[in-house]
Amino acid sequence: MSSERPPALLAALAIVGVAFFILPLAGLLARAPWQSALGELTTPEALTALRLSFVISLAATALALLLGVPLAWIYARVPFRGRDLIRALTTLPMILPPVVGGVALLFAFGRRGLFGQALDAIGIRLPFTTFGAILAATFVAMPLLVLTVEAGLRSMDRRYEDAARTLGAGRWIVFRRVTLPLIAPSVFAGAVLCWARALGEFGATITFAGNLPGTTQTLPLAVYIALETRPEVAIMLSVVLLAVSLAILVAMRDRYLRAF
């Protein structure tokens, strides 16, 4: 591949663009208390928040996969009246302020919510629970997975599915043994994006699920709370969040491009 010399204006603006992202990270790293890093991270609060964040973000990703892959399949394959509208509605959480998303979740699944009243009657409470935090994270993160998987489905060569059908495979077997493996890179990429978004989720979680260490206090909530009283802990937690996300995003890019 030959490299091309970019026009000076493009190069200059690109450098400003990079600096815009790098500088805040540099600021964070510069303020990180590296000498006491391990101590800050192994405080019980930090460990609890770390563990809870991984549980919640992974559970949200699993839930998003379970519901999002079928949804993406429907969007990509079944033309129906109002599909664009429904798709837009289910994509909305991506641009909705997460706090609004949290309030909307309360109006739906809260004790006085549309659906929550029935849940409350049978003794199920979602707000202030870990499952509530999982729901909040899924709500904001799943659209990323759905859009990525839908794009994957739309760009895959559907003739492989035809080939499978002429070999005697019914629709379900075609989906499981041909479609799913062929769009695996998209599913993987979607899951990673979804997971990263869930890991960083703040607004919907604090609004819908509240903030209680060990139950709903995820890493971003712990960072926010700690920022005012113990900024060293907050900064180190952020650095961990950054390091993990960066590693995953870099790894994913490589994996994503290396399709069959």
């Binding site: 309360l106 809260g110 004790r111 604090i206 699920a209």
Partner: peptide, 20 residues
């Protein structure tokens, strides 16, 4: 045993006024 430690006092008030 609070179920949540809200980030500010307004958030506490909201949780009560929403009935949660």
């Amino acid at each position: 045993r609070p179920v949540s430690q809200e980030v500010d006092v307004r958030a506490v008030l909201n949780k009560v006024s929403l009935g949660e």
